[in-house]
Write a protein that binds this DNA or RNA. Structure first.
Lengths: 115, 115
DNA sequence: AAAGATACATAAGAATATTATGTATTGATA
DNA sequence: TATCAATACATAATATTCTTATGTATCTTT
């Protein structure tokens, strides 16, 4: 089962930032695979969503990039900037808070073991 | 603190359906106030978001409506249809599942007491 | 040799929110 | 009693952010 895409909306940027905060640096394709792996295929980030998001993070100064060649193939690494680190904490905290609120609002506690 | 709007995206329809499943029938303004109250002002549903959503639920056959006059002021009640009840269970379950996945993906467990 | 995986990117379109605006009634207050 | 806030609906222009489709190219496995 893959989540209906609308749920991903609004959380993609936070997911990307959090992964970058755990991994020093990552490249786009790696991010898609890591998310797929960590979510047991439940979340599949499409390229059309990811690359514009990464470019936005860069133009907002939250990440810096390093382009490298693996053979003849280009690979673009993304790394959190200092402001990106701060932003990550903010976004993750906000999402955690939001999720607590949703658990209460939708009374999810009794039906979800892991929450 | 009010959540940045992007988080609401994708959850609004689920919130509305769940409230309707708990309350027999509700009208639009009532829904905005109930959400505000239950979330201690953290989630404020704007009218520009709510009314189109309610109209979409109606045109999808998930809710039925009853218009009543309170004095001279019109009030439009929304009530879940049978298919709406089924859809509500689906959407709430999916959201709960998604949130479990996010807790794992973003490692939120250690930082959020209520989760 | 071909297919699938790796790796980037962009563009057209859809969905869904924000912000602004509009209409109108009712209740509270100065 | 005039005015403001709250109640109650609705829509339109705009913005954001995703999907889907398309494009290019390399590398690996069969």
């Amino acid at each position: 089962m893959i989540y209906s895409s609308e749920l991903i909306k609004g959380t993609l940027k936070t997911i990307v930032l959090k992964l970058l905060s755990d991994n020093t640096r990552m490249y786009g394709y790696e991010i898609t695979q890591k998310v797929k792996e960590l979510t047991f295929n439940k979340i599949q980030i499409t390229e059309g969503a990811l690359y514009p998001t990464l470019h936005a993070l860069e133009s907002d100064g939250l990440v810096t990039t390093e382009t490298e060649y693996i053979g003849k193939r280009v690979r673009k690494y993304y790394r959190l900037s200092e402001s990106g680190k701060g932003k990550t904490v903010e976004k993750v905290n906000e999402l955690a808070d939001f999720m607590e609120t949703m658990v209460f609002l939708l009374d999810l506690k009794p039906r979800v073991a892991a929450l």
